[in-house]
Amino acid sequence: MLKLERVSKTFHPGTIHEKRALQELELHLAPGEFVTVIGGNGAGKSTLLNAVAGVWPVDSGKILIDSVDVTALPEHKRAAFIGRVFQDPMMGTAPNMQIEENLALAMRRGKKRGLRWGVTKAEREEYHERLKTLGLGLENRMEDKVGLLSGGQRQALTLLMAALQRPKLLLLDEHTAALDPATAGKVLELSDQIVAENQLTALMITHNMRDALTHGNRIIMMHAGRIILDISGEEKKKLTKKDLLDRFAALSGVQEETDEVLLS
């Protein structure tokens, strides 16, 4: 579903701040794979997601989504294939627009926006049903501005928006990092539910190793702009936190046996 071929990206090339964020990265996601991405600060996790989303062009390499070469497509055109939830709950929604207006915007992802009315009556009923599945009571607040919602409610809504128009790929960029533990748990549960219901292919960055182990069906670990570990299937199910730390130390050459490298 997603294919990255020798993708490289260097920030601030030729300066003292030069940062080789992705180095000839190779990644292939089969349809229905739900991949959790872990790695230390600056490992290139967010850069990987931004490269796929098209936030900026990559320096070299190819990105294919469902066999379509999207390497040269700008962010808003790639959005036709991709649903996204960001780390900052403020980033995924328009705060001064209504819940139903935000959903209507997401409903038209990848479609032409013309001079038809922005939210139709039939859509409203669909949104009502979809919002019910979140179990947050938002279906009774459809005309409320999103700015009135809490961070967790916003992330739940953003998740729903990302899947409203079934994406070929779902990108979750540490989307629970800014939430309190209870809310984060609830949003992760919703993420699982939405991925399962829509049979989505997903990439989820997390700073929490337990979450990385308990969610998804494949785990990749990044270090210095490369994927240094890639485990899926039965092997992933048996994987423990200690295994991960040991293998991280062995593979990255970083001896520090603490969570911090991976957790940060």
Binding site: H76, A79, M91, T93, E101, R108, R113, G114, W117
Partner: peptide, 28 residues
């Protein structure tokens, strides 16, 4: 009328949150 249409809504979204707008496929 215009700002209630699909295009007008996209325009309002652009002003409200350009990040979100791009992620929803709007040409900001």
């Amino acid at each position: 009328w215009y700002f209630g249409t699909e295009q007008g809504s996209a325009l309002r979204a652009t002003g409200a949150n350009p990040h979100m707008s791009r992620a929803q496929g709007i040409n900001v």
